[in-house]
């Protein structure tokens, strides 16, 4: 498909001897939200961490296969993972703002790394990203407070703003709401739907209702294999695979 921003072919991943992903094929359309569901330990987190080559930073971990980002394989030998991570942003399960940096410095950390130092540009981007992350109104008066002084939900949105500031075409979210309260969760879900018009989102969740609420397509992982992948509405109503049906009806996991 021409408008697939990302396509994965035969992706395998290992932790030492243990194979965590078994030959995954999956395409992601531009400006969509893809949800990855499955019981814990099924490889869904490992999968997203392969998409920005963060998986290999774990000691002993390795991966093989193809991940085509805008047509270019990010696992080619001459590709620098640092540049890939600039294009594929990531938000983690636990909010992880840099504790030594202020709210403002957290948001522009990526820009500063890229060498953009002009105050006016930084300010503009910081405000825009914080607005995108629906956090601006709450923090505009405490931009120079420590990033870790915010509440858990605010910290997570700060991390989203930090990832958005470098304008990545793809944003990976690894269970971004599992550590948050329901209100913060709702805010972030709303945000994800909003962001779809600008970027492509791939989101791991263990909450099936969440997947059903916000995603266009859903992938179901089990024991390192991709069991089923399709439109969210059909996957949840008429699953093709028996295992998918068992999982979404709560038979296991």
């Amino acid at each position: 498909m021409p408008d697939d921003i990302l396509s994965v072919e035969g992706l395998c991943a290992w932790f030492g001897e243990h194979q965590a992903l078994k030959s995954i094929d999956l395409n992601v359309a531009s400006h969509s939200v893809t949800a990855l569901i499955g019981p814990s330990g099924c490889g869904k987190s490992t999968f997203v961490r392969c998409l920005n080559r963060l998986h290999e930073e774990v000691p002993g971990a390795s991966a093989s296969g193809k991940v085509l980002l805008q047509g270019k394989n990010i696992y080619d030998a001459n590709v620098d993972p640092v540049l890939i991570r600039r294009k594929v942003g990531m938000v983690f399960q636990k909010p992880n703002p840099f504790p030594a940096l202020s709210v403002f410095d957290n948001v522009v950390a990526g820009l500063k790394l890229a060498g953009i130092r002009r105050k006016s540009v930084l300010k503009e981007v910081a405000e825009k990203s914080l607005r995108q992350a629906a956090l601006w109104e709450e923090v505009k008066d405490k931009l120079d407070k420590a990033g870790t002084s915010l509440s858990g939900g605010q910290q997570q949105r700060l991390c989203i703003a930090r990832a958005l500031a470098v304008e990545p075409p793809i944003l990976l979210m690894d269970e971004p709401t599992s550590a948050l309260d329901p209100i913060s969760t709702a805010k972030i879900e709303e945000l994800v739907v909003q962001l779809k018009k600008d970027i492509t989102i791939i989101m791991v969740t263990h909450n099936m209702q969440q997947a059903a609420r916000i995603s266009d397509r859903t992938a179901f992982f089990l024991l390192g294999e991709l069991i089923e992948f399709g439109d969210t509405s059909s996957l949840f109503t008429v699953p093709k695979e028996k295992k998918t049906e068992q999982y979404i009806t709560g038979k296991f996991g």
Binding site: L111, L113, E167
Partner: peptide, 21 residues
């Protein structure tokens, strides 16, 4: 927006070699 992205790209390419070194 596209201007910022352009700016980032320029800076990135310009500086990336230096950062890597």
């Amino acid at each position: 927006m596209s201007s910022l992205r352009g700016q980032i790209r320029d800076f990135t390419h310009l500086r990336y070699k230096r950062r890597k070194l």
